[in-house]
Amino acid sequence: MIGIIGYGSYVPIYRIKVEEIARQWGDNAEAIKNGIKVYEKTVPGQDEDTITIAYMAAKYALVRAGIDPKEIGALYIGSESHPYAVKPSGTVVAEALGMVPDIHIADYEFACKAGSEAMFVAYTHVKAGHMKYAMGIGADTSQGAPGDALEYTAAAGGSAFIFGKGDKVIAEVVDTYSYTTDTADFWRRETRPYPKHGGRFTGDPAYFHHVLSAAKGIMEKNGLTAKDFRYAVFHMPNASFPMRAARRLGFTKEQYEVGLIVPYTGNFYSGASPTGLSASLDDAKPGDLILMVSFGSGAGSDAFIFRVTERINEVRDLVPKVWDQIRTPRKRYLTYGEYAKFREKILMNE
């Protein structure tokens, strides 16, 4: 049996409400909330970035896995907000967690599916017998241009998954399937601070086409239908897209609501569907099947089917769970001014 042997997520404590952003730009907050079904989003602290978020998620994953960090043969971090354009994020995380030097490291980038890519490659290394354990992380401190629709959802958070074999597995990988075309619905050019997008073009030809194709593909391949799954997690750039995708695939609210964190967190980009998976694992019982479908603009989807094992009951409560972090009493709401300072959107003197 090959699958996830440890998982962990990290959600920053800072939040900004849709109302606060709307007030800044003269938008109608109610209309926006109605449209995207997102009410608030996370904001990284001034001392947080993709590396520190990946570190925390990885640390929690190591606790649940209960293994020596030195046994991890590969570390892959998927993000579209790596703090360095040139120089890996993974080396910092691996050095800080004591995984170096016998380790293969790479950073991934494929818009919002870089995290599931990292997971996919980590899993296939273990499956191929290259190494005992491999870690894949999806983490982001997403960029949204001030005043752009994305500013309401671009958030920060991430999740880490350690793959391995044998009785340490808590969620077996039943199968994977990827669906990819060249569809530029959202992009950011080199050296530019903010991404651009194709507006409604991000919907049908991009998100829905790839997510639905990947989901249908993997279910058909495995002779499964929506009702066979306990949980379904779809990439969540907002809440309305994954809910519509779920309905079109025949999933019910009970199946997607646990993993649908976006109304209270915003979009974690590369960390979005991985954190939805993490939230589902926090809730799962042995034997449950979980479908996870990521989406990365550009465009593609990675689909995974997991079957939860008995070991989930031993590891679930070892570290903070996703929804507990989302609902933390330490949560602190920012004004738009504080948000602009935190995200370094204010023009400062050198």
Partner: peptide
């Protein structure tokens, strides 16, 4: 103890991570 960004060498230099 948590792992955070302590400082950075301006906009182009290295990012200094450490404990808080």
């Amino acid at each position: 103890v948590v792992f955070r960004k302590i400082n950075a060498e301006g906009k182009s230099g290295i990012i200094e991570y450490g404990y808080k």
